[in-house]
Simulated assay, not measured.
Amino acid sequence: MKTQVYVLYGGKSVEHEISKRTAVAIINALDKEKYDVYSIYISSEGIWGTTGMVKEELKELQEGKSDSAMTPTLSLAKVLQECFSQREECVVIPALHGTHGEDGTIQGLLELMDVPYVGNGILSSAIGIDKAMTKEIFSKVGIPQAEYVFFTLHEWQRHTNRVYDQIERKIGYPCFVKPAKLGSSVGIHRCQNQDELKEAVKDSFTFDQKIVVDKEVIGREMQIAVIGNEDPKCSVAGEYILEKSFMDYNAKYVDGKLIPIIPANIPDSLHQKMQEISQQAFQVLNGSGLMRVDFFVTEENELYVNEVNTFPGFTGHSMFPALWEATNGITYSEIIEKFIDLAIERHQNSRQIQYTRG
């Protein structure tokens, strides 16, 4: 009997469109002789629906028509009953980015359903998406980072001038203002003075209620891809040639002008150090399945971890699969199968936990 694979995509997130691109690539890469593949969409309003089994290659994923009278709760219950009532061997690939997909919420639902799913668990997802919490944990174990501060909307509203003074005193200019819990460079601003800072903070607070401000690091931006559970493996490092001061949303997904360099041109000793730090980051966050670790590398070959991504963009042109192809020749389809195997392995291990006293 074939394993049933359910690919979740869309979601109530500003990264909704990126999720759709990732899902198309994953669905097309899955071996239909080995898996029965189903797509489950989540609209921007949180309405769930399914198009049933996917048997042919897709050019794009549509969300279909949602029942306007259906609430997110009712639509979720309907999809879960329709898709998982038979309880055949199955695995879920939550090809969701950002809020409600990469933050531990969907992972918690799948844990309650007791089905294996690809990627990181509740804790690592919830911490990994929160840049402030990730930085706090990394600081405790000595992972190198740029200077940073973070504050909430409530703190900013009550002590606006104090917040700006703290940023200028500890971070200075130029600095980067970021929503704590978003990816794909949404809501990120480079600020060179207080006027720009004030506008950036206002805009970033439209995407989250917590903001991180980082000191600018002059250096190359590089990435390491990590795959595994208890024994994670690291890819070679790769970098993008930047045409702007930082990779904003359009540079990553619209303009198409970024040039990846894989492997990055760095000394072997530095390469090894990046892999060691990436493995440490993965393990301290209790990672599973996959993770991408992003670095700044200065002219003096100093390393700073910028952030992690617990479910990075995974289109056919994304850095993660390209890094692994350059590392050991593994194909996109083979990586997806590896993710599925790791998900089943983790789920089987979790079933060894005893939930009763005797």
Rank of each mutant, 00 (worst) to 15 (best):
K202T: 13
A200G: 13
E216R: 13
S184T: 12
A180R: 00
G219S: 10
N193Q: 03
T206S: 15
P179V: 02
G228Y: 07
K181G: 12
R162I: 12
G238M: 04
Y173Q: 10
R220S: 14
A180T: 01
Y173S: 09
I224K: 07
Y173K: 06
V226F: 04
I241N: 06
H159F: 14
Q194V: 12
V163Y: 03
I188A: 03
Y249V: 00
Y249G: 02
I262W: 12
V226Q: 10
K244G: 11
A180Q: 03
K215Y: 01
P174C: 06
P179L: 10
F205I: 10
V226S: 11
D214F: 08
D231Y: 05
K181F: 02
C191D: 05
N250K: 11
S278F: 08
E196T: 04
Y164L: 15
C191A: 04
I261N: 06
N229M: 07
T160E: 15
A225S: 13
L242M: 14
I224H: 09
P174V: 00
A200P: 08
I277W: 09
V163I: 15
V226E: 07
E196I: 10
G172M: 07
P260D: 08
R190L: 08
D165W: 11
A237P: 03
T206C: 12
P263T: 03
T160H: 15
C191H: 01
F205E: 13
Q194P: 00
Q272K: 15
N265K: 15
Y173E: 10
C175D: 06
L270A: 01
L182V: 05
N250Q: 11
P174F: 08
D165E: 15
Q272L: 13
M274Y: 04
R169S: 15
Q275S: 08
A237L: 07
W156D: 13
G228P: 11
S269G: 03
M247C: 12
N250T: 01
K178E: 02
L182A: 08
S185R: 04
I227C: 05
Q223C: 10
L270K: 04
E199T: 11
P260E: 04
D203P: 01
S278Q: 11
A237D: 06
I262P: 09
K273C: 01
V254M: 09
G187Y: 04
K252S: 03
S269T: 12
A225W: 09
K257Q: 12
P260V: 08
F246Y: 11
N229S: 11
D214E: 15
A251Y: 05
L242E: 01
P179C: 07
F205V: 10
Q272S: 13
A225F: 11
A264G: 09
K178L: 07
K244W: 00
I211E: 04
Q192I: 10
C175T: 05
I261W: 01
G172Y: 11
D255R: 14
K252F: 06
E168Y: 05
Q275N: 11
Y164M: 13
V217K: 10
N250W: 00
G238H: 03
D248C: 02
S269P: 00
S204N: 05
G256A: 09
M222T: 09
R169Q: 15
N229F: 04
N161L: 13
D203R: 13
H189G: 02
S204E: 03
E196F: 07
